[in-house]
Computed example of a mutant assay.
Amino acid sequence: MNFSLLRLLCRTQQAAFVTLQYLLPHHLLSHLMRGLTRLRIGWLKNLLIERFIRLFNVNMAEAAQPDPRAYPDFNHFFTRALAADARPLAVGEGNVICPVDGTISQLGRLEYETLFQAKGHRYSLPHLLADHTGAVRTFQDGSFATLYLSPRDYHRIHMPLAGTLREMIYVPGRLFSVNPTTVSRVPDLFARNERVICLFDTDAGPMAMILVGAIFVASIDTVWHGTVTPPRRKTVQHWDYRQHPVHLQQGEEMGRFNMGSTVILLFGKDAVTFSDQLAAEGHVQMGQLLGSCANS
């Protein structure tokens, strides 16, 4: 079989995979997955965890609890804590650290109110931010980083900078997969999927951390609210923390995905310069240097 035919078959399979996602009942499947990952039937949860470790080559030596059988259910394993010394933080004046383990999907500057998703696809800042007028103005011509968490990655999310929470917004939506194949083929994917927008004040100015849901991501948690979704709502929900501020230190856990997904970081214009060692498709770990504050 020649190379051209193999490439055609691969493209056909990818197209079929993406097309199927338009037809699947995203939220029903995620609800079922949520139930499965919380079953506490000993032999079943052990089987699921051990197969998952082998399939995705998970490094349990980094976990605070390295024994797979010690977890009460699959979700506790999936959201496992790391050993204290597993992710040293790139501390330093003005440093911005990576909030997650994962792969850089894209990073760079916004073109006014437009973000780059993948080759051939861009999406709008107002749509991503659910038309929050103040936040849209804040991040026009700013910087963004889109970080994809694969199934094998550590799934807790940490603060890139010390910050004070201002607002949290839940935006209902679809649950398309956020893997590279789907991101390259579904227009406006990150602005279509369910998401939780967290707006902070930091030493670099305003910062948004957007936790994007995906198929089989049955739940998104934050440390100050607990589980934000489910339950799933049909309208945008808003929480204002300015009268009851939540302060988080750099590197402190701010949330987690119960199953994997994507984090999008937003900074204001000229607020942050990303490290020139980083590029799309590069692997990153929580705590490594992501960039620096322009005012440092």
Results as ranks from 00 to 15, higher is better:
Arg256Gly: 13
Ile197Cys: 13
Glu194Asn: 04
Ser4Ala: 15
Leu165Val: 08
Pro180Ala: 07
Tyr22Asp: 07
Val263Glu: 08
Leu175Thr: 06
Pro126Thr: 09
Ala64Ile: 02
His76Trp: 12
Leu44Asp: 00
Leu248Phe: 10
Phe116Val: 08
Ala90Glu: 11
Gly205Pro: 04
Ile97His: 10
Arg11Lys: 10
Asp276Met: 09
Ala61Gln: 13
Glu50Lys: 13
Ser275Val: 11
Leu32Gly: 13
Thr262Ile: 08
Thr235Gly: 00
Gly173Ala: 08
Pro245Gly: 09
Leu165Asp: 05
Pro160Met: 06
Leu278Phe: 12
Ile157Pro: 02
Asn75Val: 10
Arg87Ser: 10
Asp101Leu: 07
Thr181Gly: 00
Pro206Ala: 10
Thr227Gln: 14
Arg34Phe: 05
Lys119Pro: 01
Phe139Ala: 10
Gly35Ala: 02
Val246Thr: 03
Phe257Ser: 07
Phe116Leu: 11
Leu47Ile: 00
Arg69Val: 00
Ala135Ser: 15
Ser4Asn: 13
Gly282Arg: 11
Leu265Ala: 12
Asp201Glu: 15
Tyr154Ser: 10
Arg195Ala: 02
Leu266Gln: 13
Phe216Lys: 09
Arg109Phe: 03
Ala208Asp: 01
Thr79Ser: 15
Leu5Ala: 11
His27Lys: 07
Phe190Arg: 06
Leu6Thr: 09
Met33Asp: 04
Pro72Thr: 02
Gly35Ile: 02
Ala90Arg: 08
Glu252Tyr: 00
Ser219His: 03
Gly142Arg: 07
Lys45Ile: 03
Val136Trp: 07
Asn75Trp: 08
Leu39Pro: 02
Phe56Arg: 06
Gly291Phe: 15
Gln140Thr: 11
Leu55Val: 03
Phe3Leu: 13
Gln106Glu: 08
His27Phe: 02
Asn258Trp: 09
Phe200Thr: 02
Asp73Leu: 02
Ala279Ile: 01
Gly260Asp: 13
Glu113Ala: 08
Tyr112Gln: 09
Ala294Met: 14
Gln288Ser: 14
Thr202Ile: 04
Gly282Ile: 01
Arg11Val: 00
Gln13Phe: 09
Cys10Asp: 11
Gly291Glu: 15
Ser150Ala: 14
Leu28Cys: 04
Leu211Trp: 01
Ile104Leu: 12
Gly94Cys: 10
Ser105Ala: 08
Tyr22Ile: 00
Val217Lys: 02
Ile215Phe: 01
